[in-house]
Design a binder for these strands. Structure first.
Lengths: 316, 316
DNA sequence: GAGAATTATGAAATTGCTTCATCCGGAGCG
DNA sequence: CGCTCCGGATGAAGCAATTTCATAATTCTC
C-alpha cells in the first residue's frame, strides 16, 4: 500500500502520461472528490479509482491524500495539477482551431504566382480577403523557383495563378479575368511611331523580361516562339518598376500585362502599343484542387480575385 | 462511448485528442514517413496507419498528404504539429519534474511552527537549506491558526515544530535541541533581586505572552498550570522584539526561550533568571510523517535544524 | 516496367479501460 | 453503541480501442 514494486510496472522507462490523466487530476480537484469527478467525466467512480491508481503507479508516488475523506491532492498531485492547468487549455485551443478548420472559418491559402506581375492586383485582393477571414493563413510564394502545379497537387500550395490552363485530374482552373499583354517602349523609341507591333519588330530589340523561364512569359509563348523570332538580346529584371524605368530611359522594350502599365501610367515617359493589329487577349486562372473550390473562404477568394482587379483597372 | 457510431464520421461531439496522437504526428514528421516513425515509437507500421486514420476521422479532415509516397503533413497536419511542439515539451517537463520528485531531488517542505519564536533559528536553517535543495518548495506557516498535527497527517504541511511530542501513528517526533524557558524582567523589577523565580512569583505580575493558546506556552504548561497559579493579568503581543521592549520598560514580565533572549541580549535593560532553582529544560521536536524521515532532503533539513541553532547560541 | 519502398486494410489478438458488484472505513446520528 | 450514509477501493468480468499479422495496393526508383 505504501510502496510500489519497482520490478513490476516499468516506470524506470519513464512514465507515459496521457491527457486523460491530466483531465482526471483536474476534474477531481475541481469536483472536490473522486465520485463527483466521475460524474463530470461520464464514467463510474470505480473507473476513476482504477485510473488514479494506475497513474500513481506510473508516477511512482501518491498523488492524493486519502486520509481525508473527500480525496485531496498531495504535494506531488498539486504539481501535476499545475501542469494540467498549463497544458489542457492548449489542447482545447487546438481542438477549437480544428473546429474552425472544419467549419471552414480557418484554413490555409498559400498562393503560388507564376505570372510575376500578379502581385499588383493580388495584394489588394488579399488585403480585402484578410478582413473577412482573419483566421485563414495567407501567404504568397513566387512560384518561380518550383513547379507550381505539382506543388498544388501535393498540397504545398493551395492556389496557383496561371494563364496556361491544363487538363489535370483533381485540379480546377477557375477563370479570373482577361488582360492584354501590351508592348511598352520609350516615347523616343522608333517603334513608338507604329500603331501596333508584331513579332518581327522584336528582332532588333533588347527585350526586358521578368526572370522566369520563357514558356511562362507571354511575349515568348504568344508572340515570338510562334513566329520563331529571337530578339537581339534579353535582359532579366525582377521588379516591375525597374523594368518601366529602363524602358522609359530607352534602354530596351518590354511586354507587360495592360493592368500593370495602367497602374503606374502616371509616372513616365513611355508609350504602349497593342501587339498585332487587334491586340492579343489572355485569360488568367486560379488553379485550385477541385475539392476545395467549394470551401467558403476559397470561393470568396475567387470571387474577390475576379472582381477587384477589374475595378482597379477601371479606376486606373 | 458511441464515438464511432455516426454513419459518416464520428466527429460530431468534439474530438478527443490524446498525447499519443501528438506524439505520433511529431514522430511521423521527424522520421519523415510512417514506417520510420513506427520504428521510433516501437510499434508496427500498421498500428500507426490505423491510428492516423482514427485521428483523421476525429479531426474530420486529412492530416497527411498521401499523394507523395513518404506521406507528408497537410496544412491541417502542420497546425497540429505546431500544437504538438508546444505541448509535448511541457509534458516532458512534467515527467522530468516527477523524476526529480522520485529521486528525492525535489519535494515540498512546508513547516508549521507552533512555537512562535522559532522563526529566530528557523530562518537561518532554511537559508542554508535552500542552497542545497533549490528544487524543494519551502514555506513556513505560522501554525497558530490551525491544528498543526492533523494538518501534518493530512499532508497539508510536512513538518511541525513543537515541544510537545505525542504518540501518533505514522508521525515521528525528531528531537532537535534543548532549550530553557527563562524568566525575563526589567532590571528595576523586584523579582530581579531573586536568583531564580517560581510559579508563585507570577501571581502579582502582568505576564506578556505570544497570542497562542495557553497549552502551547511553556509558562503555562510547565510552570503555572501545574502549580495552579494565575498571574494578575496576561497581555498578548505578537512580536518578540516588542515583548522585550515592554519588559525592559517594566510594563510586565515574560518567559521566553533562552535562545531568543540571547539573540537580542545586547540591546536592553532587562535581566533573565532561571525558573526554579535548577531551571527548566525543554526539548524541541520536528514532527514529520514517519515515511518521510528517510527522504534525503528531509534528513538534511533535520540535520541542519539540529546543528545550526546550537551554533547560533554559541555565537550569541 | 521490375523491384524496392511505403502505406493501407481486414481480421484476429491483445491490452487496458470500464463496469458491476461488493467491500471497507470513517463520520454523523438516534 | 449500533446503524446508516458517504466516499473510496478492489477483484472479476466485459468490452472496446489499439496493436499485430498477413497481405494488398500504391508510388518511387532505376
Amino acid at each position: 500500500m505504501k510502496q510500489f514494486h519497482n520490478s513490476h510496472k516499468g516506470y524506470e522507462y519513464g512514465m507515459h502520461i496521457e491527457l486523460r490523466h491530466l483531465r482526471t487530476i483536474k476534474a477531481i480537484h475541481e469536483a472536490g472528490g473522486l465520485a463527483r469527478a466521475a460524474e463530470i467525466l461520464n464514467m463510474t467512480q470505480s473507473a476513476l479509482s482504477h485510473q488514479v491508481k494506475g497513474l500513481e503507479e506510473q508516477a511512482g508516488m501518491e498523488l492524493f491524500v486519502r486520509r481525508s475523506k473527500p480525496l485531496k491532492l498531495s504535494a506531488a498531485g498539486i504539481r501535476m495539477l499545475r501542469a494540467a492547468e498549463r497544458i489542457l487549455p492548449e489542447v482545447s485551443a487546438l481542438e477549437e482551431e480544428f473546429r474552425g478548420l472544419r467549419a471552414g472559418k480557418s484554413g490555409r491559402l498559400h498562393i503560388a504566382i507564376e505570372c510575376h506581375a500578379c502581385f499588383e492586383w493580388l495584394f489588394p485582393v488579399l488585403e480585402e480577403f484578410r478582413k473577412a477571414w482573419p483566421d485563414v493563413d495567407v501567404d504568397i510564394r513566387p512560384g518561380l523557383a518550383f513547379d507550381a502545379l505539382p506543388a498544388l497537387w501535393k498540397e504545398e500550395v493551395d492556389v496557383v495563378i496561371s494563364s496556361d490552363p491544363e487538363e489535370i485530374d483533381g485540379v480546377t482552373f477557375n477563370p479570373l479575368f482577361d488582360y492584354s499583354p501590351v508592348f511598352v517602349a520609350s516615347s523616343r523609341h522608333p517603334l513608338a511611331e507604329k500603331p501596333f507591333v508584331e513579332a518581327e519588330d522584336f528582332r532588333n530589340e533588347l527585350l526586358i523580361t521578368y526572370p522566369v523561364e520563357r514558356t511562362k512569359l507571354d511575349v515568348f509563348s504568344q508572340v515570338l516562339m510562334p513566329a520563331k523570332v529571337e530578339p537581339r538580346a534579353v535582359r532579366q529584371v525582377e521588379l516591375t518598376a525597374v523594368i518601366l524605368l529602363l524602358v522609359a530611359s530607352n534602354r530596351g522594350v518590354a511586354v507587360l500585362p495592360d493592368w500593370v502599365v495602367r497602374e503606374v501610367r502616371y509616372n513616365s515617359d513611355y508609350v504602349t502599343r497593342p501587339i498585332t493589329e487587334q491586340g492579343i487577349s489572355r485569360r488568367l486562372f486560379a488553379a485550385t484542387r477541385s475539392e476545395e473550390v467549394s470551401k467558403p473562404f476559397m470561393a470568396h477568394f475567387l470571387r474577390l480575385a475576379r472582381t477587384i482587379p477589374v475595378k482597379l483597372q477601371r479606376e486606373g
